[in-house]
Structure formats: C-alpha cells, structure tokens
Design a binder for these strands. Sequence first.
DNA 1: GCTCTGATGGTCT
DNA 2: GACCATCAGAGCA
Length: 225
Amino acid sequence: MGVVLTRSGGPLSDVVPGPLLAPEELLGPPDAVAPTLLGCWLVTDRPAGRVALRLTEVEAYAGDGTDPAAHSHRGPTPRAAVMFGPPGRLYVYFSYGVHWCANIVVGAEGQGSAVLLRAGDVVVGEELAAARRPAAKAARDLARGPARLTQALDIGPGDKDADLLDPSSSVRLHRGEPPVQVSAGPRVGISVATELPWRFWETGAASVSAFRPGGGPRSRRARQD
DNA sequence: GCTCTGATGGTCT
DNA sequence: GACCATCAGAGCA
C-alpha cells in the first residue's frame, strides 16, 4: 500500500531503467569507480517479477596486490576467479555459511578488483522484495546490508559470473540518477586494511547500513581465546 | 536506543 | 581447523 512516487510524481513501477552501463565506465581504480556506481540501478528479472534497486552504498576492493582485504589478494583461487574476469561481471560469494553477497567486477580484465554492493533503495517490485525479506520491518530495511540486498533481488549462486552489461541478462546494471552528495569512510566487517576510506554511500540515504559515526565498526575481535 | 551472541558452511592454510 | 566483506533476535538501558 502507499504508492511510492518519483520526484516527477509518477509511480516508480512505471519508471524505465536508464541505459546499461558500458564496460569503459567500469575501468579505472576500484576506489574511483565505486562512487560512480551510486545511483545506478541493479535490476533482476525473475519469473515472479522484476525488482530494481538504486545503489546507495558500496565498497571498493583492489586486486593490484595492495589490498589484503580483497578476496583476490591470494590470486585467482577457485572462489575469486570471477574477480579476474572482464568488468561488469557479477562476483557472488557465500558469506558466514548463511548469506550470499554480490560484487561488480571493475577494472581491466585480469586485475582482480571489484565493488561490493552493500545497500540500495528498492524502487521497483517493493512487494516482491518484501516477500523475499520477511524480517524487514520497513522499506529501508529491504536491501540495507549486502546479504539483505541479494535476498531482496533474489541473487544467488546461479548468478555467479552473470554479465550485468548484457541486455539479455536477467541481472543488469543500468545508469541512474547520481546522488547529490557522496560520503566516504572505512569499510565494514574487515579486519585488515581498515584505514582505507573505500566505503562510499549516498549522504543521508536511509538504506545505508548502520555504522558508528567516527567510532568504527564494533569490535568483536577482542574475544578471549 | 545500543550491545552481544548463535547460526552455519564454503574457502583456504 | 580456523577464519570469515553477515543477520536476526534477545537482553539491557
């Protein structure tokens, strides 16, 4: 209930996604490409219907050997091989034995860089996304966090290495309206290279995952052994 | 509101 | 066998 309206006043379900991104737009260092992905639309077309969300939070991971937090840091292992593929592919990995998380491969083929998709605002198919995310209590929680984002979009192991730039693909990356303002800060949930401000989010977006301003992520590494 | 913990399994050493 | 690019829910203030 309650039809969400665009700024121009039309129902979002009638909004047509912008053009697909071109591979050239994903070249360059991951920390330079990542903020340009904010505002872009990630769209999944499934038999149950379409869900599209507007990216509001991402993180950059570099494959040039300087970023120990990147899955590609140890080379093209079976899991991380997709990261060394061409830009615009979807790198999906299984996290904590429970969740799937999604990255967009960026940079030149062979580089091993990617951008983790952390959060977005669902703009099309909100009811379908809500059905996939029964724990979400509010619209902003539908895709607030990397694993929640993949749940809302129904992204899973079957989407590994999907070509987001192919118009015939069921998972695609479309250009959207860029945010007015972008913020940057440390990445979440990693234990190395925490000093790099490679997390980017749309300033003020409600769907940006929770973070302690100035305090960093809560430390859970202080457990005794 | 904030903090803490269990769940759960692939990946890599 | 340890380590996770996490989430949801319980407990407490």
